[in-house]
Design a protein around this nucleic acid. Structure first.
Lengths: 396, 396
DNA sequence: AATACTTTCTAACTGTCTGTATGTATCCCC
DNA sequence: GGGGATACATACAGACAGTTAGAAAGTATT
């Protein structure tokens, strides 16, 4: 595909993007500060900030700052003027929220999944969106759009969910369907990419240049943000670290739908390993069914079998973190997904195991958004996607 | 760091970059075709192509193409007008070349490394460059610059080799030294990044959007090209796949200077494993010393011990390829480095092992530039680095 | 308190670049 | 040789960022 040529209009879009991002991350800030910080002339800043103010994306504050000369009039990002709807279609649940562009939650819903076919999932999604739209919020607040994260392969540019087995969706043109029905812009992406975007915009990775979010839940996946932009790969399957191989002996098999690493270290894998260990030892699992949460709880109580399962989990996750660090060297690695609720048991031991193992040890932190990460990422996706968000890059 | 704002001048640079790249990859091409292909107006194409012609980067051809109307005057990239010098400082050798911007080699030298200290390496490098500059070439051909690939950690923007143990260099401002001495632009980068850039520009990965070059030599490293640009990571240590861990049991150790994977599957590692196996079996290595080349040669003769070593090597490399594919999903993976001379023994078996293992199987091919990859990458680096090479990217 | 100084903000103008519109050149086909 | 088609050329208009100079609104100084 050919690169994009530039006209005066796109030049304005690029500068607008940069100024808006600066205001968003540095409010309150005055126009002269923007000019100085970006090395851009005052009139240009004036013109663009005026436009942003007209669009309600930026608002002047009352506060001024003394400088020895004429005082600065401070401006701020006006995230409250718009709301966005974000939905995270998980493997076993659906989390939806409506929030303003500052990331302030206005309303949130959580719907556990009834196991149904494709039609049902779509109908429930529409119902959820309708409920969120009806939630009470400031009278003059407009809706910017809807962002949806789907568990599977997505073509985010086209807005198509190409393959989401847990929903029974195949080549579903979700963007077309939803934007037709709700008459607002709709953005679609992979749920793990959205988690990464959420952490990048509102969570542990705020202000970072590059970030990888390792989401450990039903499966394991990684969302990759490089230079502020989600990296999706040539065949839309970057970040599929559930398919990493924790050893040569995992080579000779087929992994259809579930990868080698995730069959060991995902929530499901943790529970499986615990069950096996207990059965081996002659004990029955505590309550018949057993999930990762219970394993971690038992490990906190220092039960021997659970400690062993958790230790092995730490080993496997260390492998994943080492891989990401050695290959991509991101500024920060965020541990997310359901298992991240037990991140306090994981982060330090993983870092300890990586000492001396990888060339430059990563910053590894727990998700600060928890199960809301993908939803917040969807808000971010809408914010970026509804205005031309474009930057220049120096090759080399 | 703040993103870059745009003025009319940078707008011109961007469009210039895109037009030049199109001419380079699609010569011969007419100006009207460029306008049509890029969706840009004719006058703009005219103006920029005129400038490029004045700079001698583009030349009009005599040939015309009938169209039913006024025939197209074809233009072509004029790579022959400039030469660039590329040097690949390997762990055990120094390869240098002078080539024109089409990638046509004019002269090449190969200097095996005498083991000396920092001063020696630099002096020999300077000598090599001087020899290359003195090589006979077309009279009117100007020299665009010098590109150097160093085996270690480099800060390519600053032109500093921060840590190259095999040369004894630490924080050496190579760019400053060489550009002072030779009075031409100098670019510095990691040798593996340059191999990737070479394959991307002139080798197996020509025209690809993203590429990972896995270089298996004394060590193992990967060069990563995403969106036409080398990706180097936040701490300049992306692509260090020599440090991948082929199993949980490799966790509890320290790897100083040599990673887990490369101690098994690099040229050195292959020789080590072969030696161990032979000693175990009571045989002595054929000639006392033993290197990877000999192991592959023996495997071709179907000697049992060598087949086993090669099979294990294939397993380890499959792990590396699977990792790259699962995490980055590049358009193409190129197998390079010294071991790639035996790529015919490796590529097919690796692909076979990956069938059903990774979500979307990669295109895996052998390097087509061989030991010249990094040198050609250096040429590429000079070509990109000496003119403002800049593009726009849509975030999201 | 009046003045000088400093910094922010505003307005008019200039320069650069791309696009549009129109004109010209050069072929093929009849 | 004329009509049609396509490529190339030129003149002008529009959009945008930068420059310059000046007004506004404070603080420091005398």
């Amino acid at each position: 595909m050919d690169k994009r040529t530039v006209t005066a209009g796109l030049m304005r879009s690029i500068n607008r993007t940069i100024i808006l991002d600066l205001i968003r991350t540095s409010s309150p800030i005055s126009r002269s500060q923007i000019a100085c910080r970006l090395g851009i002339s005052m009139p240009t800043v004036m013109r663009i900030v005026d436009l942003l103010t007209q669009e309600d994306l930026v608002k002047p504050l009352d506060c001024v700052e003394a400088t020895g000369g004429r005082p600065r009039h401070m401006m701020a990002f006006n995230g409250g003027a718009y709301a966005a709807i974000g939905v995270d279609l998980g493997g076993s649940k659906m989390v939806g929220a409506i929030a303003d562009l500052d990331g302030k939650l206005l309303h949130e819903t959580y719907v556990p999944w009834k196991d149904g076919g494709s039609e049902d999932a779509l109908a429930e999604l529409c119902q959820l969106i309708e409920n969120l739209m009806a939630a009470p919020r400031p009278a003059d607040q407009k809706i910017k759009g809807i962002g949806v994260g789907a568990p599977g392969v997505t073509f985010s540019r086209e807005g198509i969910v190409s393959w989401a087995p847990s929903l029974g969706w195949c080549n579903l043109p979700l963007k077309a369907i939803l934007s037709e029905r709700f008459d607002v812009p709709v953005m679609v992406d992979n749920d793990v990419n959205l988690s990464a975007l959420g952490e990048y915009g509102f969570g542990s990775g705020r202000g970072c240049e590059s970030l990888v979010c390792i989401a450990v839940g039903t499966g394991i996946g990684a969302g990759i943000i490089l230079g502020g932009s989600p990296y999706r790969g040539y065949r839309h399957s970057a970040g599929e670290i559930g398919y990493l191989l924790p050893g040569v002996k995992y080579l000779g098999r087929r992994y259809d739908g579930f990868g080698a690493l995730e069959s060991l270290a995902s929530g499901t894998g943790i529970a499986d390993r615990a069950r096996q260990l207990l059965e081996q030892g002659g004990c029955l699992p505590p309550t018949g069914v057993l999930d990762a949460q219970q394993v971690f709880a038992a490990a906190r109580r220092d039960e021997c079998w659970a400690r062993q399962v958790v230790d092995e989990t730490i080993d496997y996750l260390s492998l994943a973190v080492a891989t990401v660090s050695a290959l991509l060297d991101p500024e920060i690695i965020v541990l997310g997904g359901g298992v991240a609720r037990s991140a306090d048991l994981l982060v330090e031991p993983i870092l300890a195991r990586l000492d001396g193992v990888v060339p430059s040890p990563p910053r590894l932190v727990a998700s600060s958004l928890g199960r809301r990460a993908a939803v917040m990422g969807a808000i971010m996706l809408v914010m970026y996607g509804t205005t031309e968000h474009v930057v220049v890059n120096q090759l080399i």
